[in-house]
Design a protein around this nucleic acid. Structure first.
Lengths: 186, 186
DNA sequence: GTCTATATCAGGATAGAC
DNA sequence: GTCTATCCTGATATAGAC
Protein backbone atom coordinates (compact mmCIF):
# COMPACT_ATOMS: atom_id res chain seq x y z
CA UNK A 1 0.00 0.00 0.00
CA UNK A 2 1.23 3.46 -0.91
CA UNK A 3 0.43 5.02 2.45
CA UNK A 4 2.34 2.37 4.33
CA UNK A 5 5.30 3.02 2.11
CA UNK A 6 4.92 6.74 2.71
CA UNK A 7 4.97 6.19 6.47
CA UNK A 8 8.20 4.23 6.11
CA UNK A 9 9.82 6.88 3.96
CA UNK A 10 8.77 9.66 6.32
CA UNK A 11 10.18 7.74 9.25
CA UNK A 12 13.42 7.39 7.33
CA UNK A 13 13.91 10.90 6.00
CA UNK A 14 11.23 13.05 7.53
CA UNK A 15 8.41 14.98 5.95
CA UNK A 16 10.84 17.36 4.36
CA UNK A 17 12.90 14.49 3.03
CA UNK A 18 9.96 12.76 1.41
CA UNK A 19 10.79 12.49 -2.29
CA UNK A 20 7.97 11.39 -4.48
CA UNK A 21 10.43 9.34 -6.47
CA UNK A 22 11.67 7.52 -3.39
CA UNK A 23 8.14 6.90 -2.29
CA UNK A 24 7.35 5.45 -5.69
CA UNK A 25 10.34 3.14 -5.46
CA UNK A 26 9.42 2.08 -1.93
CA UNK A 27 5.87 1.30 -3.00
CA UNK A 28 7.10 -0.40 -6.17
CA UNK A 29 5.20 1.88 -8.53
CA UNK A 30 5.95 4.85 -10.77
CA UNK A 31 5.81 8.48 -9.74
CA UNK A 32 3.04 9.05 -12.25
CA UNK A 33 0.83 6.64 -10.38
CA UNK A 34 1.39 8.51 -7.16
CA UNK A 35 0.20 11.67 -8.87
CA UNK A 36 -2.73 9.79 -10.28
CA UNK A 37 -3.94 8.97 -6.77
CA UNK A 38 -2.98 12.19 -5.00
CA UNK A 39 -3.15 15.49 -6.76
CA UNK A 40 0.15 16.79 -5.42
CA UNK A 41 2.86 16.28 -2.85
CA UNK A 42 0.89 18.06 -0.13
CA UNK A 43 -1.99 15.65 -0.67
CA UNK A 44 0.29 12.72 -0.11
CA UNK A 45 1.41 14.21 3.17
CA UNK A 46 -2.09 14.92 4.34
CA UNK A 47 -3.28 11.41 3.55
CA UNK A 48 -0.24 9.80 5.11
CA UNK A 49 -0.54 11.72 8.32
CA UNK A 50 -4.17 10.76 8.61
CA UNK A 51 -3.18 7.18 8.01
CA UNK A 52 -0.49 7.32 10.67
CA UNK A 53 -2.70 8.74 13.37
CA UNK A 54 -5.41 6.17 12.67
CA UNK A 55 -2.88 3.40 12.87
CA UNK A 56 -1.45 4.74 16.12
CA UNK A 57 -4.87 4.59 17.73
CA UNK A 58 -5.25 0.98 16.86
CA UNK A 59 -1.86 -0.18 17.93
CA UNK A 60 -1.91 1.29 21.43
CA UNK A 61 -5.24 -0.36 22.10
CA UNK A 62 -4.72 -3.77 20.56
CA UNK A 63 -2.84 -6.35 22.57
CA UNK A 64 -1.12 -9.40 21.17
CA UNK A 65 -3.41 -12.39 21.45
CA UNK A 66 -2.17 -14.50 24.32
CA UNK A 67 -0.52 -11.60 26.12
CA UNK A 68 -0.97 -11.75 29.90
CA UNK A 69 -4.01 -9.97 31.26
CA UNK A 70 -2.84 -6.96 33.21
CA UNK A 71 -4.31 -5.07 36.11
CA UNK A 72 -5.27 -1.43 35.65
CA UNK A 73 -1.89 -0.02 36.57
CA UNK A 74 -0.09 -2.56 34.43
CA UNK A 75 -2.30 -1.67 31.51
CA UNK A 76 -1.49 2.00 31.97
CA UNK A 77 2.23 1.43 32.15
CA UNK A 78 2.10 -0.91 29.21
CA UNK A 79 0.31 1.63 27.08
CA UNK A 80 2.75 4.41 27.81
CA UNK A 81 6.01 2.48 27.93
CA UNK A 82 5.11 0.68 24.72
CA UNK A 83 6.02 3.86 22.88
CA UNK A 84 9.52 3.91 24.27
CA UNK A 85 11.03 0.84 22.72
CA UNK A 86 13.68 0.66 20.08
CA UNK A 87 11.88 -1.62 17.66
CA UNK A 88 11.36 -0.77 14.00
CA UNK A 89 7.59 -0.47 14.32
CA UNK A 90 7.66 1.85 17.31
CA UNK A 91 10.52 3.90 15.91
CA UNK A 92 8.65 4.31 12.68
CA UNK A 93 5.42 5.39 14.28
CA UNK A 94 7.01 7.70 16.80
CA UNK A 95 9.20 9.30 14.20
CA UNK A 96 6.29 9.84 11.87
CA UNK A 97 4.16 11.17 14.70
CA UNK A 98 6.88 13.61 15.70
CA UNK A 99 7.15 14.76 12.12
CA UNK A 100 3.44 15.24 11.93
CA UNK A 101 3.46 17.30 15.10
CA UNK A 102 6.38 19.42 13.92
CA UNK A 103 4.90 19.95 10.48
CA UNK A 104 1.59 21.07 11.90
CA UNK A 105 3.31 24.10 13.40
CA UNK A 106 3.63 25.49 9.88
CA UNK A 107 0.78 23.74 8.16
CA UNK A 108 -2.69 24.63 9.33
CA UNK A 109 -4.24 21.81 7.30
CA UNK A 110 -2.69 19.26 9.59
CA UNK A 111 -3.73 20.82 12.84
CA UNK A 112 -7.32 19.66 13.03
CA UNK A 113 -6.54 16.01 12.47
CA UNK A 114 -3.67 16.23 14.91
CA UNK A 115 -5.74 17.81 17.66
CA UNK A 116 -8.39 15.15 17.15
CA UNK A 117 -5.89 12.31 17.43
CA UNK A 118 -4.26 13.89 20.47
CA UNK A 119 -7.61 14.19 22.19
CA UNK A 120 -8.50 10.57 21.55
CA UNK A 121 -5.20 9.49 22.99
CA UNK A 122 -5.47 11.72 26.08
CA UNK A 123 -8.94 10.38 26.77
CA UNK A 124 -7.76 6.84 26.47
CA UNK A 125 -5.04 7.45 29.03
CA UNK A 126 -7.42 9.34 31.30
CA UNK A 127 -9.71 6.35 31.19
CA UNK A 128 -6.88 4.03 32.20
CA UNK A 129 -5.94 6.36 35.04
CA UNK A 130 -9.56 6.30 36.13
CA UNK A 131 -9.43 2.53 36.38
CA UNK A 132 -6.45 2.75 38.70
CA UNK A 133 -8.05 5.53 40.74
CA UNK A 134 -11.81 5.22 40.42
CA UNK A 135 -12.26 8.09 42.86
CA UNK A 136 -10.14 10.57 40.90
CA UNK A 137 -12.09 13.60 39.67
CA UNK A 138 -12.52 13.91 35.94
CA UNK A 139 -10.51 17.14 35.74
CA UNK A 140 -7.62 15.70 37.75
CA UNK A 141 -7.58 12.57 35.60
CA UNK A 142 -7.66 14.60 32.40
CA UNK A 143 -4.82 16.83 33.60
CA UNK A 144 -2.67 13.87 34.55
CA UNK A 145 -3.35 12.24 31.20
CA UNK A 146 -2.41 15.38 29.32
CA UNK A 147 0.82 15.66 31.25
CA UNK A 148 1.75 12.02 30.80
CA UNK A 149 1.09 12.00 27.08
CA UNK A 150 2.82 15.34 26.51
CA UNK A 151 5.78 14.08 28.50
CA UNK A 152 5.85 10.96 26.40
CA UNK A 153 6.03 13.06 23.26
CA UNK A 154 8.82 15.12 24.76
CA UNK A 155 10.79 12.05 25.81
CA UNK A 156 10.28 10.41 22.42
CA UNK A 157 11.67 13.42 20.65
CA UNK A 158 14.69 13.47 22.91
CA UNK A 159 15.23 9.81 22.33
CA UNK A 160 14.86 10.01 18.57
CA UNK A 161 17.02 13.10 18.32
CA UNK A 162 19.79 11.41 20.26
CA UNK A 163 19.64 13.42 23.47
CA UNK A 164 18.42 10.56 25.65
CA UNK A 165 18.89 6.77 25.64
CA UNK A 166 15.62 4.83 25.43
CA UNK A 167 16.27 2.98 28.64
CA UNK A 168 16.57 6.21 30.53
CA UNK A 169 13.50 7.60 28.83
CA UNK A 170 11.57 4.59 30.11
CA UNK A 171 12.76 5.16 33.66
CA UNK A 172 11.72 8.77 33.51
CA UNK A 173 8.33 7.84 32.13
CA UNK A 174 7.81 5.26 34.84
CA UNK A 175 8.75 7.86 37.44
CA UNK A 176 6.19 10.27 36.04
CA UNK A 177 3.44 7.67 36.17
CA UNK A 178 4.37 7.09 39.75
CA UNK A 179 4.30 10.80 40.55
CA UNK A 180 0.92 11.33 38.90
CA UNK A 181 -0.65 8.37 40.66
CA UNK A 182 0.65 9.60 44.00
CA UNK A 183 -0.75 13.00 43.29
CA UNK A 184 -4.14 11.53 42.45
CA UNK A 185 -4.12 9.73 45.80
CA UNK A 186 -3.35 12.86 47.78
CA UNK B 1 22.91 39.90 12.14
CA UNK B 2 22.56 36.88 9.89
CA UNK B 3 21.93 34.41 12.69
CA UNK B 4 19.17 36.51 14.18
CA UNK B 5 17.57 36.65 10.77
CA UNK B 6 17.94 32.88 10.46
CA UNK B 7 16.15 32.37 13.75
CA UNK B 8 13.31 34.56 12.54
CA UNK B 9 13.01 32.76 9.23
CA UNK B 10 13.10 29.36 10.88
CA UNK B 11 10.41 30.44 13.30
CA UNK B 12 8.33 31.59 10.37
CA UNK B 13 8.70 28.70 7.93
CA UNK B 14 10.57 26.04 9.80
CA UNK B 15 13.95 24.50 9.12
CA UNK B 16 12.28 22.71 6.25
CA UNK B 17 11.12 26.01 4.80
CA UNK B 18 14.38 27.87 5.22
CA UNK B 19 15.36 29.27 1.81
CA UNK B 20 18.81 30.72 1.60
CA UNK B 21 17.40 33.42 -0.62
CA UNK B 22 14.77 34.36 1.91
CA UNK B 23 17.34 34.38 4.66
CA UNK B 24 19.49 36.70 2.59
CA UNK B 25 16.56 39.06 2.04
CA UNK B 26 15.68 38.98 5.73
CA UNK B 27 19.24 39.81 6.70
CA UNK B 28 19.50 42.43 3.97
CA UNK B 29 22.44 40.80 2.23
CA UNK B 30 23.07 38.68 -0.86
CA UNK B 31 22.98 34.91 -0.97
CA UNK B 32 26.62 34.92 -1.96
CA UNK B 33 27.51 36.52 1.33
CA UNK B 34 25.67 33.84 3.21
CA UNK B 35 27.77 31.24 1.44
CA UNK B 36 30.86 33.26 2.16
CA UNK B 37 30.21 32.95 5.88
CA UNK B 38 28.81 29.42 5.96
CA UNK B 39 29.99 26.81 3.58
CA UNK B 40 26.54 25.38 2.86
CA UNK B 41 22.95 25.31 4.01
CA UNK B 42 23.68 22.71 6.68
CA UNK B 43 26.30 24.99 8.16
CA UNK B 44 23.73 27.74 8.52
CA UNK B 45 21.48 25.41 10.49
CA UNK B 46 24.30 24.28 12.71
CA UNK B 47 25.34 27.84 13.51
CA UNK B 48 21.76 28.94 14.08
CA UNK B 49 21.13 26.14 16.52
CA UNK B 50 24.19 27.16 18.47
CA UNK B 51 23.04 30.76 18.40
CA UNK B 52 19.54 29.92 19.56
CA UNK B 53 20.62 27.73 22.41
CA UNK B 54 23.09 30.33 23.63
CA UNK B 55 20.43 32.97 23.49
CA UNK B 56 17.96 30.75 25.31
CA UNK B 57 20.46 30.19 28.08
CA UNK B 58 20.80 33.90 28.57
CA UNK B 59 17.18 34.71 28.45
CA UNK B 60 16.06 32.10 30.93
CA UNK B 61 18.77 33.20 33.35
CA UNK B 62 18.64 36.98 33.02
CA UNK B 63 15.91 38.79 34.86
CA UNK B 64 14.65 42.23 33.99
CA UNK B 65 16.37 44.81 36.17
CA UNK B 66 13.92 45.85 38.85
CA UNK B 67 11.98 42.59 38.69
CA UNK B 68 10.97 41.35 42.13
CA UNK B 69 13.44 39.02 43.80
CA UNK B 70 11.91 35.58 43.93
CA UNK B 71 12.32 32.73 46.34
CA UNK B 72 13.66 29.40 45.09
CA UNK B 73 10.32 27.98 44.08
CA UNK B 74 9.28 31.20 42.42
CA UNK B 75 12.50 31.21 40.45
CA UNK B 76 11.86 27.65 39.30
CA UNK B 77 8.31 28.38 38.21
CA UNK B 78 9.38 31.56 36.51
CA UNK B 79 12.05 29.76 34.54
CA UNK B 80 9.73 27.07 33.28
CA UNK B 81 6.56 29.06 32.76
CA UNK B 82 8.49 31.75 30.93
CA UNK B 83 8.60 29.44 27.95
CA UNK B 84 4.86 29.15 27.77
CA UNK B 85 3.87 32.67 26.85
CA UNK B 86 2.45 33.89 23.62
CA UNK B 87 4.91 36.68 22.96
CA UNK B 88 6.86 37.05 19.72
CA UNK B 89 10.22 36.40 21.37
CA UNK B 90 9.14 33.23 23.17
CA UNK B 91 7.20 31.96 20.18
CA UNK B 92 10.20 32.51 17.96
CA UNK B 93 12.63 30.75 20.24
CA UNK B 94 10.33 27.85 21.02
CA UNK B 95 9.40 27.35 17.40
CA UNK B 96 12.99 27.37 16.28
CA UNK B 97 14.00 25.07 19.10
CA UNK B 98 11.25 22.61 18.21
CA UNK B 99 12.29 22.67 14.59
CA UNK B 100 15.88 22.00 15.37
CA UNK B 101 14.92 19.18 17.71
CA UNK B 102 12.76 17.67 14.98
CA UNK B 103 15.44 18.12 12.35
CA UNK B 104 18.05 16.46 14.48
CA UNK B 105 16.13 13.21 14.16
CA UNK B 106 17.31 13.09 10.55
CA UNK B 107 20.44 15.16 10.77
CA UNK B 108 23.25 13.74 12.83
CA UNK B 109 25.23 16.97 12.61
CA UNK B 110 22.74 18.74 14.83
CA UNK B 111 22.58 16.10 17.50
CA UNK B 112 25.71 16.89 19.46
CA UNK B 113 24.99 20.57 19.95
CA UNK B 114 21.39 19.79 20.77
CA UNK B 115 22.35 17.25 23.42
CA UNK B 116 24.79 19.71 24.92
CA UNK B 117 22.20 22.48 25.12
CA UNK B 118 19.64 20.07 26.55
CA UNK B 119 22.08 19.00 29.23
CA UNK B 120 22.89 22.57 30.23
CA UNK B 121 19.21 23.32 30.54
CA UNK B 122 18.45 20.20 32.56
CA UNK B 123 21.29 20.99 34.93
CA UNK B 124 20.06 24.51 35.40
CA UNK B 125 16.61 23.26 36.34
CA UNK B 126 18.08 20.57 38.59
CA UNK B 127 20.02 23.27 40.36
CA UNK B 128 16.86 25.31 40.91
CA UNK B 129 15.07 22.24 42.22
CA UNK B 130 17.98 21.69 44.56
CA UNK B 131 17.52 25.15 45.98
CA UNK B 132 13.89 24.37 46.76
CA UNK B 133 14.78 20.96 48.20
CA UNK B 134 18.34 21.12 49.48
CA UNK B 135 18.01 17.59 50.80
CA UNK B 136 17.00 16.05 47.49
CA UNK B 137 19.46 13.48 46.18
CA UNK B 138 21.33 14.39 43.01
CA UNK B 139 19.76 11.56 41.02
CA UNK B 140 16.24 12.43 42.09
CA UNK B 141 16.80 16.09 41.27
CA UNK B 142 18.25 15.25 37.88
CA UNK B 143 15.34 12.95 37.07
CA UNK B 144 12.78 15.54 38.04
CA UNK B 145 14.58 18.16 35.97
CA UNK B 146 14.66 15.89 32.95
CA UNK B 147 10.96 15.20 33.26
CA UNK B 148 10.03 18.83 33.73
CA UNK B 149 12.06 20.05 30.79
CA UNK B 150 10.92 17.22 28.52
CA UNK B 151 7.34 17.94 29.51
CA UNK B 152 7.88 21.58 28.70
CA UNK B 153 9.08 20.64 25.24
CA UNK B 154 6.08 18.41 24.77
CA UNK B 155 3.65 21.07 25.93
CA UNK B 156 5.31 23.70 23.75
CA UNK B 157 4.92 21.54 20.69
CA UNK B 158 1.27 20.96 21.46
CA UNK B 159 0.75 24.64 21.97
CA UNK B 160 2.58 25.66 18.80
CA UNK B 161 0.87 22.99 16.74
CA UNK B 162 -2.54 24.13 17.88
CA UNK B 163 -3.50 21.18 20.05
CA UNK B 164 -3.41 23.05 23.36
CA UNK B 165 -4.10 26.66 24.41
CA UNK B 166 -1.14 28.34 26.14
CA UNK B 167 -3.11 29.08 29.26
CA UNK B 168 -3.90 25.43 29.70
CA UNK B 169 -0.32 24.47 28.97
CA UNK B 170 0.77 26.74 31.80
CA UNK B 171 -1.65 25.13 34.21
CA UNK B 172 -0.41 21.69 33.29
CA UNK B 173 3.19 22.78 33.73
CA UNK B 174 2.43 24.28 37.12
CA UNK B 175 0.75 21.03 38.13
CA UNK B 176 3.79 19.05 37.11
CA UNK B 177 6.11 21.26 39.14
CA UNK B 178 3.83 20.67 42.06
CA UNK B 179 3.85 16.92 41.54
CA UNK B 180 7.61 16.74 41.24
CA UNK B 181 8.19 18.83 44.34
CA UNK B 182 5.80 16.64 46.31
CA UNK B 183 7.60 13.59 45.09
CA UNK B 184 10.95 14.99 46.19
CA UNK B 185 9.51 15.58 49.67
CA UNK B 186 8.28 12.01 50.01
C1' DG C 1 -4.73 2.04 -13.61
C1' DT C 2 -0.12 1.95 -14.75
C1' DC C 3 3.95 2.87 -17.28
C1' DT C 4 8.06 5.58 -19.84
C1' DA C 5 9.49 9.50 -20.95
C1' DT C 6 10.11 14.50 -20.39
C1' DA C 7 8.93 19.43 -19.40
C1' DT C 8 9.56 22.70 -15.91
C1' DC C 9 11.29 25.04 -12.21
C1' DA C 10 12.81 26.11 -7.56
C1' DG C 11 16.49 26.72 -4.99
C1' DG C 12 21.40 25.56 -3.59
C1' DA C 13 25.72 26.87 -4.86
C1' DT C 14 29.61 29.40 -7.43
C1' DA C 15 32.38 32.79 -10.57
C1' DG C 16 34.27 36.89 -10.80
C1' DA C 17 34.07 41.96 -10.27
C1' DC C 18 34.51 45.62 -6.92
C1' DG D 1 33.51 41.44 2.72
C1' DT D 2 29.99 42.19 -0.37
C1' DC D 3 27.60 42.34 -4.71
C1' DT D 4 25.42 40.82 -9.48
C1' DA D 5 24.75 37.36 -12.42
C1' DT D 6 24.35 32.77 -13.47
C1' DC D 7 24.93 27.88 -13.48
C1' DC D 8 23.06 23.36 -12.59
C1' DT D 9 21.19 19.74 -9.89
C1' DG D 10 17.52 17.49 -8.21
C1' DA D 11 12.71 17.16 -7.55
C1' DT D 12 7.73 18.14 -8.82
C1' DA D 13 4.54 17.43 -12.04
C1' DT D 14 2.51 16.21 -16.73
C1' DA D 15 1.91 14.08 -21.58
C1' DG D 16 0.72 10.40 -23.89
C1' DA D 17 1.06 5.41 -24.85
C1' DC D 18 -0.51 0.90 -23.30
Amino acid sequence: MILEAAARVIARHGVRGLRVEELAAEAGVSTALIYYHFKHRAGILQATLEFISDRAERYTTDREPGAPVLDARGELEQTLLLELQDTPAVRENSTAWGELRASAVFDADLREELARATLVWVQEVAELLGRVHPMGGAAALAGAAERLTALLEGLSMRWLSGSLPVAHARELMAGAIDAELHRLSA
